[in-house]
Design a protein around this nucleic acid. Structure first.
Lengths: 335, 335
DNA sequence: GTGAAAGCGCTAACAC
DNA sequence: GTGTTAGCGCTTTCAC
C-alpha cells in the first residue's frame, strides 16, 4: 500500500516549509517562483489534501448532512438534489442517511452527523431528534427541519415547511369544481403535516357546503394497509347512502398503493371515482393523475442555503403548494 | 455560541486523564467506578466525540462515499439504499454526490471524496475518474466501480456490473415468445453497458432468425431527444416495409419518455406495439410494463460490503438480470 | 515572503 | 488500571 503524501512531503520536495505549502494551497502571499515549485511537488507526489485534518482545525467539516425519513419518496429525492446543487456550488458534498422511517435509526444518524461535525444538517424527521438539533444549533451547526415546524426556535434552528392547510384547500376546491362531493381520504398517520393537510381539506370542504364526515378519513401507515383502508372508505360511503365519488391521498408515499387499490377493484378514474394525491412524480403526467405538488427541489436548495449563509436568527420558511390539474378528477364544471 | 466539550473537558470533569476517557469510550480496560464517573461527565457536558479527529488519527474516515451519475434513476436510488443499509450496520454513513451526468463534476466529486478520506468509494461514473480510483485503491481506499468493468484491476479496485448481454437476450427471447419480430431500439448512447445490451439483443435476435437491421437502433441522449428518435424508428420500419411491432428501451432513465412518445402518438401498447424496457420501478406493475430488472439493491449492498470487508485482490461481480413479464408485450404464444 | 513552533481533538505507546 | 507523552496532518500566529 502506497502511503499518501502529506503536506510535509510536499514541503520537503519543494524545499520549503509546510507553512508555505499551506499558503500556496489556500491562497496566501507567496512568490510566483515558490508557488510553482510547490505546485510541481504537489503534482509529482500526487498530493491530495486531507479534508479531515482541515476540519479538525476549523472545528467543523465542509459537508452538509441530510437525514431523510424515506428515500423512496420522490419528494425527498428532489430535496436532496436541491441540497446537492448548493453543496457542489460550495465545493462541498452532501452526507446522506436514510432512517427507513425508524425512530431509533433517526436518533443514531443525527448523532452520527453531529459526530461528523457537519457544516449544517437538514433533517426531515420527527420530534425524536429535537433536543439534539437544538443543541447543535447552539454549538454553531445550523439545522434545518423540513416538514415540521419548530416551536421557540433558537438562532440557527430553521424550518422549511409546506403550507399544508393550503394543500388541503387546493384539493377541496378542485374536487368541488369537478362536481365531486362525497370524498374519502387516505392519510398516512399522525405526523403534523398529515394532520394539517386533512384539517385544511376538511375546513375548505365545510366552507364549500359539503362537510367531510368524521369517518371519511382513514389512516394507512404502510402500503400494505392501503387496500384495506380504501375498502373501508368505499364501504362507509355506501352505508351512508352517499357512495364515494372521490378519493384524496394526503401523502405521495402511498400514491401507487391507493391508485392500484382503486384500479384492481375495477374502479374507473375519473369515471367512477376522482383521484387526487400529493407530490408530483415522473409518471403522473403519463397516468393523468392530478396532484398537489410541493416545490421540493426549491426547498432543498433553500435548506442548503440556510446552512451555507448562516443567517443570524431562526428562519421559518413556508412554501406554497400548487395544484397540477390533469385528468383524474374529471372535467372542471365551473369557469 | 456554546463551545463543545472536548475529551479534555470530560477528563477534567471526571478527574481522570484523557487517555482514560478514550478507553472508556472505545472499550479499554477501566474500573467500573472510573467508567461510571466518566459516563456521568459525558452526559453532564453533553459530550459528542469528534469523528473528524478520529479519522485524522486513523488515516481515514468511517464514511462510505457514493458518486452517482444521475440521482433521478430508480436504479441508483435502490443502489444507495443498499449501500446505506450496510453503512448503518457499521455505524457509518454514506456520503453522496450527484454528478448530473457532467464529467467535470464527476472528476471534482471523486477528488473531494478522496480528500474526505472516505473509507471506500462506490462510483457509477465513467472512465474520467479511472486514474483517481486506481490511485485511491493503491492508497488503501477500496473503490467499487458500478456498471463499468475495469481492465487490469489492481487490488482494492472492484467492479460490479450487470450481465448486460443477458439483459438484451432476455428481451429478445421474450419478444420472440410474444410473436414480435420487427423491433426498434432506443438506446441512451455510447456507454459500454448500453453497447453490450444492444449487442446482446442483436445477437439473440439473429440466433432467433430475425436479425435486427442496422438502422433499427437509435440513440437518444436526453429525454428531449426521445420523441424524435421514436419517430425515426417508426418511419424506418415503415419504409422498410416491416412496420415496427415492438420497441425496446435499453435504459431505465428514458422509460417515461419512450412510453409517452408512444402513447401520445396514439399507439396502443401492446395492441399496436410491444414495449419492454430496463429497470423495474414502482409504477411498472400498475402500468403493466414488462421490464428487465437489475438487482440494484443487492448491488448496492454488495458494493458496500466490498468496502467494509476489504478483500485482498480485485473482485469483479456480475449480477444476473431478470425478466419481469407483464402485459406490455402481449401474450406469450409458446409454452 | 518565509520558517519555526504551537496547537486543533483525539489515540496509542509507554511507563508506573 | 491509569497517567504521561508523543504524535496524526494541517493551519496559524509570530518572528525574521
Amino acid at each position: 500500500m502506497v502511503k499518501r503524501a502529506t503536506i510535509g512531503d510536499v514541503a520537503a520536495d519543494a524545499g520549503v516549509s509546510t507553512a508555505t505549502v499551506s499558503r500556496v494551497l489556500n491562497g496566501g502571499a507567496v512568490t510566483e517562483a515558490t508557488a510553482s515549485r510547490v505546485w510541481e511537488a504537489v503534482a509529482r507526489l500526487e498530493y491530495t489534501p486531507n479534508a479531515l485534518t482541515k476540519g479538525v482545525f476549523a472545528g467543523r467539516s465542509s459537508t452538509i448532512g441530510v437525514v431523510i425519513r424515506d428515500l423512496s419518496s420522490p419528494f425527498y429525492l428532489d430535496l436532496i438534489r436541491g441540497a446537492d446543487e448548493v453543496a457542489a456550488a460550495n465545493d462541498s458534498l452532501v452526507m446522506l442517511a436514510n432512517t427507513f422511517r425508524r425512530v431509533d435509526r433517526e436518533v443514531a444518524q443525527v448523532r452520527t452527523m453531529d459526530e461528523q461535525r457537519v457544516r449544517g444538517l437538514i433533517v426531515t424527521t420527527g420530534e425524536a431528534t429535537d433536543g439534539r438539533t437544538r443543541r447543535m444549533a447552539g454549538n454553531g451547526t445550523p439545522c434545518v427541519i423540513v416538514a415540521r415546524s419548530v416551536r421557540d426556535a433558537p438562532p440557527g434552528l430553521h424550518s422549511i415547511t409546506l403550507d399544508d392547510a393550503e394543500a388541503g384547500r387546493l384539493m377541496a376546491a378542485h374536487l368541488a369544481e369537478c362536481g365531486r362531493s362525497s370524498i374519502g381520504v387516505v392519510s398516512s398517520g399522525r405526523r403534523p403535516s398529515q394532520i394539517r393537510r386533512t384539517a385544511g381539506l376538511r375546513r375548505a370542504l365545510a366552507d364549500l357546503g359539503s362537510p367531510l364526515p368524521e369517518d371519511a378519513v382513514t389512516v394507512a401507515e404502510s402500503e400494505e394497509e392501503v387496500s384495506g383502508a380504501v375498502g373501508a372508505l368505499l364501504a362507509r360511503g355506501h352505508d351512508r347512502g352517499a357512495p364515494l365519488d372521490a378519493i384524496v391521498c394526503t401523502t405521495g408515499r402511498l400514491t401507487v398503493a391507493v391508485h392500484s387499490a382503486l384500479t384492481t377493484r375495477g374502479i374507473a378514474i375519473p369515471g367512477d371515482i376522482a383521484f387526487v394525491t400529493m407530490d408530483d412524480f415522473p409518471w403522473a403526467a403519463a397516468l393523468g393523475i392530478t396532484v398537489v405538488a410541493q416545490p421540493s427541489y426549491q426547498m432543498g436548495l433553500k435548506a442548503a442555503e440556510l446552512i451555507v449563509d448562516r443567517p443570524g436568527g431562526p428562519v421559518a420558511l413556508v412554501f406554497a403548494p400548487t395544484l397540477v390539474a390533469r385528468a383524474s378528477c374529471g372535467e372542471r364544471r365551473t369557469a
